[in-house]
Simulated scan of single mutants.
Amino acid sequence: MKKRATIVDVAKECGVSQATVARVLNGQTGIRTKESTKKRVLAAAKKVGYQRNAIAANFRLQQTNSIAVSIADITNPFFPELVKGIQEVLRAEGYSVIQLYNDWDTDVEQEHFDYMVRTCVEGAIISPSASTTRFDALQSTPFVLLSNSDKFSMHDTVGNDSRSGMRLALERLYQLGHRRIALFVGGSMRSGSNWRAELFREFHRERGLSVGSDLILESDYGVSSTSSFVAARKIMNSFLDQPDLPTAIFSSNDILALATLQVANEKGIDVPDRLSVVGMDGIFSGEVSYPPLTTVQKNRREIGRTAAVALLDKIRSSKEGPVRRQLLGCKLLERGSMGPATSGSVD
């Protein structure tokens, strides 16, 4: 392997001191250098194939022009569009993105925080792996969290208004005559998940309806999307065998909903005539499922862009501002997996 050319090689080639070469190649202006000397240095650098080590130079200046993005699950199709939004904003401002994932391991997450400090990233955008995640290690590193959980109310956050999004789905199902609705929660999430069951019960109370514990299903939390899908299939294989099925199932994410849809198809349960299936997130797989999945769509790219802008504001601010919590709205995409209730409805 060819050895990387250094300032020493450039100095030997053009016959000037290493200090002079460094001044020219680093663009230093404190000491004047003859124009003819600059030309000699630049010509020598090109000849020996010298490339400036921007990383080393930035470390000396404590400026790396890099932002870390930390997520828990690299297999979750929710994140690519979100990271794309982050990168669009940061690249336009001259920053590079370092992507880190911890596989729901809080110890690995803390190691990544230490890495961020050691490598002098200028900021971080973090999707916490747990509601107990600690950010002490980041010290003076500016960061923004991707979360809508009240558990992180002391930090700047950007997330979806998932509560309103879930209500949109439940209200539409109610309009379609559904009175026996099941809630399926779990999968690739961990922090702030209890509110879904609370909102579900509240929705039923407001309409004078009872909801049995048998209609709230839980899968494993904080697992990869692949494991989540497998676990959801197992639960639905059992649940959909019971004689008294609900007329609709709302799932807390599209992975659970797609598993539900797949098992229903395998068992010959007609969707949506016999069972309506609704998910949440708006991932691409839902568009090409059979039938196409109705879902509460989250604007993932806009979340990423908003988080990136919020982080840049923190980096550039000369003083600490008030904590900002930004929630972006959701919308219901009605597709083929949702329809009017044909049984279990109220006249």
Rank of each mutant, 00 (worst) to 15 (best):
S193I: 14
R167G: 04
V97D: 01
V83T: 11
Q110N: 10
S285E: 12
L82T: 10
V10P: 07
R91M: 13
Q110C: 08
P291Q: 09
L328Y: 09
Q110G: 06
S164I: 11
S147R: 07
I67D: 00
A44L: 08
S17G: 12
V108W: 01
K314D: 02
T64A: 08
N76Q: 04
I283R: 08
S193V: 15
R274I: 05
L312V: 04
M236K: 00
F239W: 03
V83R: 07
D270E: 14
R180Y: 05
I315M: 12
G321L: 14
G177Y: 00
V323K: 03
G186N: 05
V41R: 06
I126F: 00
E218A: 06
W195P: 08
I71C: 06
T132C: 07
E109R: 08
K234T: 07
I235M: 08
D220P: 15
F135P: 08
D313G: 02
P243G: 04
L145A: 06
T157H: 00
D103I: 03
A308Y: 01
Y115C: 15
A68W: 09
L61Y: 12
S225L: 00
S129T: 14
I71R: 04
C120E: 12
R305Q: 14
G339E: 09
A11Y: 06
I55T: 15
L332A: 02
D73G: 04
F143L: 00
L245P: 01
A264M: 10
N299Y: 10
P128Q: 05
L209E: 13
D244I: 08
L82K: 08
F250R: 04
T75C: 06
F284M: 11
E81R: 13
E202K: 11
G49V: 03
A45Y: 01
R305E: 13
S149C: 09
